[in-house]
Design a protein around this nucleic acid. Structure first.
Lengths: 229, 229
DNA sequence: CGTCCATTTGAGGTGGATCAACCCTAGTGG
DNA sequence: CCACTAGGGTTGATCCACCTCAAATGGACG
């Protein structure tokens, strides 16, 4: 039943990926009981929801990675955020999604109906507080990112990006970026060529090391911080 | 008592502007009873709160205008939002203000203690919902602004700005901008000269008219929309 | 009427975009 | 197991939108 509704309402996909109930709560929202969470998978580049679509579900990345973005009419794209495992995304206070969301690579998400969260928030003050705090966390990120987009140089933007990704997904000092250079450019307000040149320069200065274009090791976080204004 | 605490805690000002109790509720938050609102005035360019300061109060503009901004260490500034009469600002879910706030011109605000709002939110679900919705509204603005800062051209940014201000403060088809060209530039990620040139060009094309540099009449909103991507 | 800023306008410089090869590597099929 | 291919990434050359620096103009206020 829920599975069916997901297949039709979440993205109206022709394919029908395996979806099944999980008894687990929507951990990141709170340990609140009584929420039914479902898992769902998307393939690389598949749309999860579109801009201005009704916001029926709230999502949490289980594995993979997601980009949230807005488009101008001529195709220029601004990625507002990348969502990595454990991140919640798609949470709205209003009726619709403000940004579209796509899987960057094959991705599994856990999701709950927005209406069930709203219901829980109506009876449990802690849930209401948590929903507000999550939106406030997104706002903080957006405010930091406005400073980057409005005022930082290309090298400062790339340095900021590397430190953010290092913090969020480095394992054993190494990070495996899920996204391509174009995605990074569209996140930082740059072209993919400018991103590539900045990374090459950091490499030649010994500040980072590559093991393939998307496997990066930061060799000198301090110097990267200095480059970041 | 509260007056005294405001003088010392809100900005520690040497001057002591007139502050007095108002029986009125904090209208924009909700018609919730039991909240004590106070009025306070700031002179042009006076700081209301600094970046990373504890967020003790929530503010509503009564008259005047406010800029919220972040600074880089070398002084580059990104204004995240302008706050105009009836706007609420300074609302935080966390402990501190993420951006600094300053009066653009002589400004009067109404304010309430954050703790009293939190208390009200704990007992009244409608208040909790409203606080979330206000933060979500700020997030929507920030998301739109990221697209502008990351991907729009100078002319598109200025067109977007004019349409936003027209919507928010036009009276009888005319808008009186409270902020200078530098503020507009720091809001749009441009220099003040680029803003001035764009406005001059729109003027020469008959899209807008001036009555003094800050009194603007939009003569063709449709063409402005077309310039906005 | 004079002073002080805000604004406009001009001239020239530049950081990042654009356009164009080329290269690498992972995946494919022979 | 290797040749082939396609898509992602790198690098080079050139361009241009916007920035910087400079000067003139205008408007508000004493």
């Amino acid at each position: 039943m829920l599975t069916q509704s997901l297949n039709t309402q979440v993205h109206g996909s022709k394919i029908a990926p395996a979806a099944h109930h999980v008894s687990d709560q929507f951990g990141a929202i709170t340990g609140h009981v009584g929420l039914v969470a479902t898992e769902f998978s998307y393939r690389k580049d598949e749309e999860i929801y579109g801009e201005d679509e009704p916001a029926e579900y709230v999502y949490q990345v289980v594995s993979g990675a997601v980009r949230s973005y807005k488009l101008l009419s001529d195709g220029r794209r601004q990625i507002g955020a990348f969502h990595l495992p454990s991140d919640v995304f798609g949470l709205e206070s209003g009726a619709t999604h403000r940004l579209a969301a796509e899987a960057i690579i094959d991705t599994t998400v856990r999701l709950v109906k927005r209406s069930s969260l709203e219901k829980a928030a109506g009876t449990d003050v802690q849930v209401a507080r948590k929903l507000w705090a999550m939106t406030a966390g997104e706002l903080r990120h957006a405010e930091d990112h406005m400073l980057l987009l409005g005022r930082k140089t290309a090298m400062e933007r790339v340095a900021t990006f590397l430190l953010e990704m290092d913090r969020r997904l480095a394992v054993a000092g190494m990070m495996a970026l899920p996204m391509c250079r174009r995605d990074i450019g569209d996140y930082l307000g740059l072209t993919l060529e400018t991103v590539s040149r900045a990374l090459s320069q950091l490499h030649s200065q010994g500040i980072l090391g590559f093991s393939g274009a998307r496997q990066i090791v930061l060799r000198n976080r301090q110097r990267l911080h200095n480059l970041d204004a």
